[in-house]
């Protein structure tokens, strides 16, 4: 899935219009894809639209335009706490996943042994096992082991679900990695750590970066695993917003959701600049 768009030969849709004849099939194709794009954008655009309402209710059509709900949205109880917690958690989970994942990918890429494929499948299995199942399993495990510190439990849960992304993206970078570079560095006197920092890491950097960004995003956005591991002290942002949506109806929710959408779009743009949208296809 991580095929670079640019490397593929430029093939374009045959343009009947160039000959002055518009194909009915082409019109249908573009119309269908247009409708699909509208469908994809609809709920997101609608939330943003209603967040600007001047009225008292988040209903369509919005009554007038204003920014009056954004201030109260930020002031909702617990919002800032949850935002800080989620950002911290995402940063911690991404860091830990990178440490564990890069070392695992290095081990997998450099070592051949019996059962390597099985081990790789095992490391990837948190992606295959439905998150709801691993979340409940983890919850039962923590309760059974009497581990009740929610912030630690959340971190463990998030690392488990973000780890496969790091291993996958970093392992993909190793596939085109020329190991003789490291061997050369070693022959020329670099120690293993220095060889890793100066040779291996710069080459696999895009994979590491992509893995780190995925982990951060997946953790920040993760709802299913968090909803079972939070306690009243540590509520992550998605869980907080979920509780708001269930209990509040005013446009503050629309403004809050819109803020999250701006964040998502910013992340999408930044990751495009940083690692290329095409690489995000592996997401």
């Amino acid at each position: 899935m991580t095929v670079e768009l640019r490397s593929v030969r430029r093939a374009t849709v045959p343009r009947e219009t160039a000959k002055g004849r518009v194909s009915l099939g082409m019109i249908a194709l573009y119309a269908q894809v247009g409708a699909y794009v509208v469908f994809l954008a609809a709920p997101i655009v609608m939330v943003v639209l209603l967040s600007f309402t001047a009225g008292e209710f988040a209903i369509f059509p919005p009554e007038g335009l204003s920014l009056r709900w954004y201030g109260p949205a930020l002031a909702m109880p617990g919002f800032i706490d949850s935002l800080v917690l989620s950002l911290q958690l995402a940063a911690q989970a991404a860091t830990l996943s990178l440490l564990l994942g890069v070392s695992a990918a290095l081990g997998l890429a450099r070592t051949r042994f019996r059962g390597r494929q099985a081990l790789l499948a095992g490391i990837m299995s948190p992606l295959v096992v439905p998150t709801i199942v691993s979340s409940l399993a983890l919850l039962q495990f923590f309760v059974g082991a009497n581990l009740r510190e929610a912030s630690w439990n959340l971190l463990v849960g998030h690392v488990i679900i973000t780890l496969p992304y790091v291993v996958r993206t970093v392992l993909a970078s190793f596939e085109v990695f020329d190991w003789s570079l490291v061997d050369t560095a070693r022959v020329l006197g670099a120690g293993p750590v220095r060889a890793f920092w100066r040779v291996t890491l710069p080459v696999i950097r895009p994979g590491v970066l992509a893995g780190g960004i995925f982990s951060f995003l997946v953790s920040f956005d993760s709802f299913t695993i968090s909803v079972f591991l939070v306690d009243s002290q540590s509520v992550t942002l998605p869980v907080r917003v979920f509780n708001y949506i269930l209990t509040q109806l005013d446009p503050r929710i629309a403004a809050l959701s819109a803020l999250l959408i701006y964040g998502s779009i910013a992340v999408l743009v930044v990751s495009d600049r940083l690692i290329g949208t095409s690489r995000l296809r592996g997401f």
Binding site: P43, I44, D221, V241, S257, L260, S264
Partner: peptide
């Protein structure tokens, strides 16, 4: 590509709220 990826980047909770509207 951006259109297809956009829903994936928006929180599941916000998406559900959008559909409710």
């Amino acid at each position: 590509l951006v259109a297809v990826l956009l829903p994936l980047f928006v929180s599941v909770v916000v998406r559900a709220y959008g559909w409710e509207i």
